[in-house]
Design a protein around this nucleic acid. Structure first.
Lengths: 220, 220
DNA sequence: TGGTGTGAAGGCGTTCACAGCT
DNA sequence: AGCTGTGAACGCCTTCACACCA
């Protein structure tokens, strides 16, 4: 049994990517892939891909390729997706609504099982089949519903408070959409998605590209 | 004149972060910061922070710290934020709506100046003051409005088509929310935000943390 | 033969520690 | 005295190239 040793952080998003693309290949009827095929479908260098898969105690066949189904199971196991994870969402504004409606979560085994907001017009209303609770009830509701992941989609000034409540409720993993640096105890994992930062990075590249970056109709 | 040499890709998100936090400090009346102060406010190691700032031809004063205003200008210049960038958004579903309503863009100099969708019920309707155009009009409308950044928020199967139209329209920078690997010519920059991938990475960490990851009410 | 798995080399980014300026 | 700016060391990740096996 190949015993895998600590997977590099940098490999994790790629593992998730492989899993998704393998799912698409399966829908198209494929049962095997080579590292070259999967590499070009994912835009990853094939050597890197093989190394990534070797981290999870790889199951390819030399001279042949990878059997898709067992590979997907290995990936799901590694990513902890076998235990269906239940997610709490705090902040039901524009973005929160969008997240509730986002089918990608359910498709990949994440169930939004609690919604929170402070707006009295929202509390008590069901959205996507789940009744919005008041934010102050986080410490009570989250343990009841087995929440392991919290998503913060509040305005900036409310984010730290929401985060603190989630941590109190025993949530160890937080996805933060608010443009704020959350302070958490070291055992809590925070991932940040900052849309404006993404645009600023693109803006940097835009100003590098051609110094004359006036858009124009290009060769087609 | 300290001439900066190519900024590491890894530093860019941090530069954007420094800029935001410096803005907050300014609102609180501060005029100077030390690297230690800014480091703890951003959660970045102070040596790394100083090195990051040195990439942009740093403007600190030894023994004192950084003058906030000129530092912010330097950051804005580096990130290409002096030229107000105009953004096109393709796909006005849940997420698209949320993005239109997201104030963080405007606050940081990004103006959404074109909206596109294929839904006939949406085309012609103004959202946030901008009339939705049919997606097929991208190559015509984007150059007219000086769009330099395209945001793809369509369903997966429509994403590549939307992307192709944007590239045809001369857009060189694309932010992709669709769970799809976009194929683009090498001169085009794509950044990806995949919400499900973020959750999967958290899920991995959750399954590492304590093997017994049942949520419970913790010490407070 | 053909494609995986992997040591070894190389490159990039972070961290250290201190020289140098104010 | 204090804090910035930065060479140098370190470590992680990627890339290479080939041994190994079906």
């Amino acid at each position: 049994m190949t015993r895998e040793r600590s997977i590099p952080e940098a490999a994790l998003p790629r593992l998730a990517l492989y899993l998704r693309v393998l799912g698409e290949l399966t829908e198209n009827g494929a049962e095997r892939v080579s590292s070259d095929e999967l590499a070009s479908a994912t835009g990853v260098n094939s050597a890197k891909l093989r190394k990534d898969l070797s981290y999870i105690g790889s199951n390819g066949t030399r001279g042949v390729g990878y059997e898709i189904a067992p590979l997907m199971h290995a990936l799901e196991g590694t990513l902890g997706l076998t235990q269906n994870r239940s997610v709490a969402l705090v902040g039901i504004g524009n973005l929160g609504h969008a997240l509730v409606g986002y089918s990608g979560f359910a498709e990949r085994g994440f169930r939004i099982s609690a919604l929170f907001d402070v707006d009295p017009d929202l509390v008590g209303i069901p959205i996507g089949g789940i009744v919005v609770e008041h934010t102050r009830r986080i410490p009570e509701v989250c343990p009841e519903r087995g929440v392991t992941i919290g998503v913060v989609a509040t305005p900036g000034q409310a984010a730290q408070g929401a985060c603190d409540l989630l941590v109190d409720a025993g949530v160890r993993c937080i996805l933060n959409f608010a443009p704020v640096v959350l302070q958490v105890p070291s055992e809590v994992d925070v991932r940040k998605v900052d849309l404006a930062v993404e645009l600023q990075i693109l803006s940097f590249h835009a100003s590098q590209h051609g110094p004359g970056t006036l858009p124009r109709v290009v060769n087609r």
